[in-house]
Design a protein around this nucleic acid. Structure first.
Length: 420
DNA sequence: TCTGGGGTCCTAGGACCC
DNA sequence: TCTGGGGTCCTAGGACCC
């Protein structure tokens, strides 16, 4: 048996922790640049605000119902997430962090317990210790526990836990769940399935292996077996190192000049390099891309990317910046209104597996010492106190974030104040 | 008219997730 | 005026090898 624990409307719940007045009041959290709604409280969902809708399209609704709007505050959400995960860890010996607000728990060692009661305990503890409401779904496979979680949210809201303990309880949720709402079925497969007469998950489990294999590849087949109660998706108790790392942003305003783009690319590269060092990896390839805003029909459109191969795998910030700017130089064209750019490192290898080159001019030992020292300083004094010249200090491509809450739990200057 | 057989690696594109 | 950011896996087809 496996449990999926999911934080309810996570970003909204994090904001409410420090604004308890907003309990029962509609809350929306916006994406970077205050672009789209990416989290909605139940009250906001009830107003018809859809996931991913641009803010300007719902502005009237937001104002009319006095919805409390926040810019996304990932520093805060990341820290609250850590606290939730650390608490979950106290319940089981094996768990998998699935996303910022979800974790799979291995319940197999608890076979003699009443798992429904355990789910209720987990929910109560997280609410009491951290203040975040969670829902728990328990079933035989990852896919079924995902479904149980959704079923709990829809049908057993007050308990907030659903345990598909036997065939009857499993069938109930299979019948309730439409194919489009199965974890692993997106828009394309949902269309395929409904066109072929499969309406609910209960219909889908009757499909033949051959048909599913043929139309949905082995991924679909695994999913089918999972729904029949046969665990078929691997468990990852330890997060494997990333195979691709990307840092990209839309700009707060459109950008035309190369200098500013260089500054952005240098900063995104520094961020990728830091992520590489944190997972003890190096890259042999760096890609730079930029694009104009496709929604501005009045603008000339341009989108390009360039991959630069490195002679020796590295995770050194200045070295990577050098290659990234080389890539940018090859794709930059004057006269366009750029809306976004980004940096991706691919072909990532563990840092012990670097193949050195005979013609290498870099002093890699020195690089390593410099990186280590700078990372330490930046951890101690705030995220990017020490930067390379190309990164600049005055950020000319700043993000819009008009409704940003404070970093209550991670920054000493932003602690919440309480009047007694 | 007729043009082998078997393998690997790489890439682009499509599907999905939060 | 205004439309997010960061990932994974699988497959088909082409290049290349012997």
């Amino acid at each position: 048996m496996y449990a999926l624990v999911d934080c309810n409307n996570f970003y909204c719940s994090c904001e409410r922790l420090f604004a308890p007045k907003l309990e029962n009041h509609p809350v929306v959290v916006l994406s970077n640049n205050d672009g789209c709604a990416i989290a909605r409280s139940e009250e906001a969902k009830a107003l018809g605000i859809q996931m991913g809708t641009p803010e300007y399209m719902i502005r009237d609704t937001l104002q009319a119902h006095n919805v409390k709007v926040f810019s996304s505050n990932y520093t805060l959400y990341g820290d609250i997430s850590d606290r939730v995960m650390r608490t979950l860890e106290t319940f089981v010996s094996k768990m998998e962090l699935y996303s910022i607000d979800e974790a799979f728990l291995d319940m197999n060692e608890m076979i003699y317990q009443d798992l429904l009661q355990l789910g209720i305990d987990i929910r109560r503890t997280i609410k009491k210790n951290i203040g975040i409401p969670v829902t728990v779904g328990i079933a035989n496979t990852k896919t079924l526990s995902k479904m149980a979680n959704r079923y709990a949210k829809k049908i057993h809201k007050d308990v907030g836990v659903y345990w598909a303990a036997n065939k009857d309880l499993t069938d109930r949720m299979l019948e309730f769940t439409e194919v489009a709402d199965i974890w692993g079925i997106g828009a394309q497969y949902a269309k395929l399935l409904t066109n072929n007469g499969f309406k609910t998950a209960k219909d889908f489990v009757q499909a033949s292996d051959d048909w599913v294999r043929q139309h949905m590849s082995v991924v679909g087949l695994r999913l089918l077996h999972e729904l029949r109660g046969q665990p078929s998706i691997e468990w990852e108790y330890e997060a494997p190192p990333k195979k691709n790392i990307c840092t990209s942003r839309s700009f707060g305003t459109l950008i035309t000049d190369k200098k500013t783009l260089e500054q952005a690319v240098a900063n995104y590269t520094a961020s990728c390099a830091l992520k590489l060092r944190n997972q003890k990896s190096c890259t042999r390839e760096i890609q730079v891309f930029l694009k104009t805003n496709q929604f501005r029909v009045q603008d000339k459109q341009y989108s390009a990317g360039r991959t630069v191969k490195l002679p020796v795998a590295t995770n050194s910030t200045p070295e990577l910046i050098k290659y990234a700017l080389k890539g940018l130089n090859l794709i930059y064209r004057p006269g366009y209104n750029y809306q976004k750019c980004g940096v991706i490192v691919m072909d990532i290898i563990p840092q012990e597996q670097i193949q050195y080159s005979l013609f290498d001019n870099e002093d890699r030992k020195k690089q390593k010492t410099v990186s280590k020292t700078l990372d330490k300083i930046n951890i101690a004094f705030g995220k990017d106190l020490v930067r390379y010249a190309k990164q600049g200090y005055e950020k000319r491509y700043k993000l819009r974030a008009e409704y940003l809450s404070k970093r209550y739990t991670t920054n000493i200057d932003e602690l919440p104040l309480i009047k007694i």
